[in-house]
Amino acid sequence: MRKLLLTTTLALPLTLGAAFAQDTAPAADPAMDPVETAPMTETATPDMAADDMATDDADDSAAAASAAEKVEVQQAENEWRLDWITGTSVMSPDGADIGSISDLIVDSETGEMKAAIIGVGGFLGIGQKQIALPWADLTVNSDAQEITSDLTREEADAAPEYVFRDQEAPAGDMMSDPAADPAMAPAADPMAAEPADPMATEPADPMADPMATEPADDMMTEPTGDMTTEPAPAN
């Protein structure tokens, strides 16, 4: 009996400890679960970036070298800008102001300057006439700040006006006047002239009163003959 009690006394704490340990087991912590990481993507390395920059620099250098052979780099001392010439006054040999240069005529085949267009006369640009002086006859100095001609003021006033030509339109210009080309004329609009409205003329009203026009009253016309004559008695 003592052995049984001793065995029970020893086993009871062990059983209670196991149960207590089972009940107090920590719950699963989601934060402790293993996290799946995305696969690492390949990133540009410093060597690859350096190679790309070297390639871009080589391309830019090649383009710059090629462009330098096709363009003018610097204005020479004997060259003038166009806006230095236009607007400059042309003086006669005696120092009289003939007029100012408004335009230049250039040879399309040789590229040479042919003439300078000068506005002569008028007041504040109104009533001017345009004359052309040969470029070879003009003396230009001091970077086009002074331009002289052998034409006097009286000769400039009496000179004929220069005749300009119209610029040719490019081939296939869609802005040309369609009236000049029948093929470019717009097609007639079929809806421009509206057909006659079939409902414009109202048909006879089927609900019109057929008695609206009364026929001659046969009952109002007295029959011929004397209606008061009594028939002869039968024999």
Score class of each variant (00 low, 15 high):
P30S: 07
A31H: 14
M32S: 15
M32L: 15
D33E: 14
V35L: 03
T37S: 13
P39D: 05
M40D: 13
T41G: 13
T41L: 15
T41Y: 10
T43F: 05
A44H: 03
A44K: 08
T45V: 01
D47E: 15
M48A: 13
A49M: 06
A49R: 10
A49I: 10
D52P: 00
D52A: 13
M53E: 08
T55I: 00
D56R: 13
D60I: 10
D60H: 14
A62W: 07
A62S: 06
A63M: 11
A64P: 02
A67Y: 13
A67Q: 08
A67V: 14
E69V: 13
E69H: 13
E69L: 10
K70F: 15
V71S: 12
V73T: 14
Q74T: 02
Q74K: 11
N78M: 09
E79G: 02
W80G: 07
R81F: 09
R81N: 08
L82I: 15
W84D: 10
I85G: 04
T86G: 05
T88F: 03
M91D: 04
M91W: 04
M91A: 05
D94G: 09
G95E: 00
G95M: 02
G95T: 00
A96C: 10
D97S: 14
D97M: 13
I98F: 03
G99H: 01
G99L: 00
S100N: 06
S100I: 02
S100V: 00
I101P: 01
D103E: 07
D103Y: 11
D103G: 11
D103I: 00
L104Q: 02
L104M: 05
L104A: 01
I105F: 11
V106N: 06
S108I: 14
S108K: 15
E109N: 04
T110F: 03
G111S: 05
E112Q: 04
M113V: 08
M113A: 08
K114F: 11
K114T: 10
A115C: 02
I117E: 03
I118S: 02
I118R: 03
G119P: 10
V120P: 12
G121R: 12
G121K: 12
G122R: 02
L124E: 14
L124R: 12
G125Q: 04
G125T: 05
G125M: 04
Q130N: 15
I131R: 01
I131L: 00
A132T: 14
A132M: 11
L133D: 07
P134H: 01
W135E: 01
W135H: 01
W135V: 00
D137Y: 10
L138H: 08
L138P: 02
L138K: 07
T139K: 11
T139W: 12
